[in-house]
């Protein structure tokens, strides 16, 4: 990476939720602040800014990452997906999102975007995990409202439904 001048604004060209976008940021700006305050993508939530709570999780080149531990300049030329990308603006909710609704996997919803971003990537990699593995994956996220049971049930139901569909095909 080239050495950046700390006061100069950097132009960042990247793909945000499938669309080519450009924004500017100082080299020290966090990706979470950049997404929220420069790009206006407020589905990326900030809960701790020290990498523990997982609320700020987004996908960078398809991998779930903490946007509060990433600098905005690091995503230049890369692909960033936030929760807004899952169903798109006007499409129906994805099966995972719908399961969260059915199983009451959210209350205040503040932790939810991060959890959805981790989970959707996790299930792509690992379509048939055990509940223990799911809980393990979720341990990178803090939720203060639900006690996690609704979240776990929603994810397990999604897995089951996908399995059922796969078997039927």
């Amino acid at each position: 990476m080239p050495k950046l001048n700390q006061d100069s604004l950097q132009k960042i060209d990247f793909t945000l939720n499938g669309v080519a976008e450009t924004g500017t940021a100082e080299p020290r700006m966090l990706l979470s602040d950049f997404l929220r305050n420069v790009m206006g993508v407020t589905g990326c939530h900030v809960g701790c800014e020290h990498g523990v709570c997982g609320a700020c999780t987004v996908q960078i080149d398809g991998k779930a990452q903490r946007s509060c531990l990433t600098l905005a300049v690091q995503v230049a030329g890369r692909k960033v997906d936030t929760v807004e990308s899952l169903a798109g603006r006007e499409n129906p909710l994805t099966d995972l999102q719908q399961a969260f609704k059915t199983h009451h996997g959210l209350q205040c919803g503040y932790c939810t975007p991060g959890i959805l971003m981790s989970t959707s990537e996790f299930l792509d990699r690992n379509p048939n995990p055990t509940e223990e593995e799911v809980r393990d994956m979720l341990s990178g996220h803090l939720c203060r409202c639900t006690g996690y049971a609704g979240i776990v049930n929603a994810i397990m139901a999604t897995i089951e439904e996908r399995q059922g569909k796969a078997a039927a095909e």
């Binding site: 407020t42 589905g43 990326c44 807004e84 999102q97 609704k101 939810t112 975007p113």
Partner: peptide
């Protein structure tokens, strides 16, 4: 839930 799940 709809708005919360969409991040909007």
């Amino acid at each position: 839930d709809e708005a919360l799940l969409r991040g909007v």
